[in-house]
Amino acid sequence: MKGLWLLLILLALVALAALPWYGSDVLVQFGISTLLLAVLAQGWNIIGGYTGYASFGNSVFYGLGAYGVAIAMVQWNLPFGVGMVFGVVLAVVFAFLLGLPVLRLRGHYFAIATLALAQVMAAIVSNIPLAGQNIGLVLPPLNNDRLFYELSLALLVLATLTVFWLTRSKFGFGLIAIRENEEGAAVMGVNTTLYKVMAFALSGIFTALAGGIHAYWITFLDPESAFDISLNVKMIIMAVFGGPGTVLGPVVGAFVLSAVSEVLSSEVTSIAGLFFGIVVVAAVVLMPRGVADVIRRFRTSGWRYFAENIKAHRL
């Protein structure tokens, strides 16, 4: 059974990796943005899914990663790789500076405290000449979608392997304990402050890398698009749709919802947003614990699974 799963995942991976050689240009572009969204959902999964802290500040990591690459390449004429490292450094510094005070808050308070961060960062960056103020920065174009696609795929694999390692490690066990009962975790000798900040930083590293790739791919960056709260909402929806606190859930969620959103916006254009909203509401009502939980439980409870969830909502 385990071998079969591994084989399926490997086959899917090979099919994905080979896509630029058999897919159309449009499909490859769709692939890049989907893979990057999946990285964001997987990054959010570390702090939101495993540690239980619903972060709305992850889009700041994304913006910092994007600006790291843009500033390094445009202002300092450094190579892309150095820009990525610079973006990661910015994200980790931000995670520690902000995580130490903000991660003391729990539940809704933490979510609200992080909600404004993206707005604040957009305002700050708009006033920094090095970052091009509110005009933004234009990066040197590199017309190589195949490269961007493979880079994004590699990053997603790395993020997913990291989450898989989390589920097997003492560190990950500690994070789950924090999610389940933070007081209990502290009493059992888990250094909760350190663990939460490390999870926040780890989440930030992958998010920043995705932001860096995206900036170089799109070749243009301004504060509004870099620190976009709706992007943060998107990663949460995708992670929760797929199954937060699972290894493959956020990836599946990102793939499915990106595809649904793409089909809707090409078929019904003007009211695509409405349909997308309906899909999300239906998903939350019918399967609040995500696709991963449906797959686990459908075999035993069948269609009753959905009925039970509706009942649990008292609809």
Partner: peptide, 8 residues
């Protein structure tokens, strides 16, 4: 209050 991990 025991502070167990209820869902584990």
């Amino acid at each position: 209050g025991r502070q167990l991990f209820d869902r584990m």
